Amino acid sequence: MRTRPTLTWEPTGAPLPRTTSLDEVVEVVAAGNVAVLSGAGLSTESGIPDYRGESGTLRRHTPMTYDEFVGSLEGRRRYWARSHVGWRTIARAEPNVGHHAVAALQARGLVSGVITQNVDGLHTAAGSADVVELHGNLDRVICLECKDISARQVLDDRFTTANPTFEAVALQVNPDGDVELEEHAVQSFALVDCTACEGVLKPDVVFFGENVPRVRAEACYRLVDEADALLVLGSSLTVMSGLRFVRHAHKAGKPVIIVNRGRTRGDEYATVRVDLPLGQALTDLATRL
């Protein structure tokens, strides 16, 4: 039977200094039953930018909000025109060494489950099992009226048919598959409706201002409750949808390990804070274990 290591840490109300050593991470993960919470920083090495990191797109781009999408035809037209171009970049992305390292640790029985804030599906593509996609997945489309779920590739084909002369070049690709386009390209884009009920189609992802479905959030809490430690990978924890699980683990007295470039909103709850590139850190971690 594995014994959970006791780290030399006492809560002081102030974040611990960041380190580049993986020694304490190795100690915690080697004991097993570790839940992973990943963010956009894990996918940057796959060519998908993040929102808030060193090259974060929030400095130049305002993401689509739920209210704007459901309340404005022009808002939906702008989103789908830009996403029609940007989704292909997300769809072509391949898992990087960090995703593969997480899958390997899970296969060895050390990682008990994965919660991801990312909508790119790369954890599953790398071989991780039973991934909880906190914010959904761009590969799926949902009808807001009848709730029918369909494949994004099918919608992409329908958009191509409905817009035979549409040509646009992405000026900037964002983590949600949205891109920057010239306004004239957006205005000419033809929308399509749900084939089942002619309702409004939306990517099956959680927009800014939209709540994570309760059943999904409860699944994440159970995963954290059943784990002995929480390993945060590449998330600034700026939004409460991810931070709440860090607070939950901290309140339960479980080690919280954060591996991220730069500060996070959860630093005050961390047992260890490691500042390293995710691919390098996770490859080294998997090798040492």
Rank of each mutant, 00 (worst) to 15 (best):
Y79W: 11
T62D: 13
R88M: 09
R92K: 13
Y66N: 08
R77S: 07
V114I: 10
V70A: 07
H100Q: 13
M64Q: 10
S46W: 05
W80F: 03
E68P: 02
S83F: 10
V70T: 15
A91V: 12
V85H: 01
H84K: 01
H84Q: 03
V97E: 12
A104Q: 13
V97R: 14
R82A: 13
F69K: 05
I48K: 04
W80V: 00
E74L: 10
D67F: 08
T57N: 11
Y79S: 05
A107F: 02
G53I: 04
L110P: 05
F69G: 03
V102N: 09
S55H: 15
E54M: 13
T57V: 15
T57K: 14
S72L: 04
N96F: 03
H61W: 15
R77V: 09
P49L: 09
G53F: 03
Y79H: 08
G71F: 12
A107V: 03
H61F: 15
A104N: 09
P95A: 08
G71N: 12
V114T: 08
Y66K: 11
S72E: 03
H61T: 15
A107D: 13
H61L: 13
R77W: 11
T57H: 10
V111D: 02
R88T: 08
R82E: 10
V114F: 03
T62A: 14
L105Q: 05
G71R: 09
D50C: 15
M64K: 00
H61G: 00
R77Q: 15
G53M: 03
Y51G: 05
V114N: 02
R78W: 01
D67S: 15
N96P: 05
H61N: 02
D50T: 13
G71Q: 12
L58Q: 10
Y79M: 07
V111M: 05
L73K: 13
A107N: 14
V70W: 05
V70I: 15
R108V: 00
R59Y: 10
A81D: 04
I90W: 01
R60Y: 14
R82N: 02
L73D: 09
E68I: 07
D50L: 14
A93E: 03
L73I: 07
W87K: 03
L110N: 08
H99N: 08
V114A: 04
G71S: 12
F69Q: 06
A103R: 05
Y79R: 06
R92P: 00
Y66C: 06
L73F: 12
I48H: 04
T57R: 14
W80I: 01
H100P: 00
D50S: 14
S46L: 06
R77Y: 11
E68N: 14
H100I: 04
R52A: 04
R52T: 06
V85F: 02
H100F: 12
G56L: 11
P95N: 08
R108N: 02
R82C: 10
E74S: 09
A104V: 06
I90S: 00
R108P: 01
A101F: 07
T62S: 13
R76T: 01
Q106A: 09
T89D: 10
G71I: 11
S83M: 07
T89L: 10
H99G: 06
V70H: 06
T57C: 14
H100V: 09
V97F: 01
E74C: 01
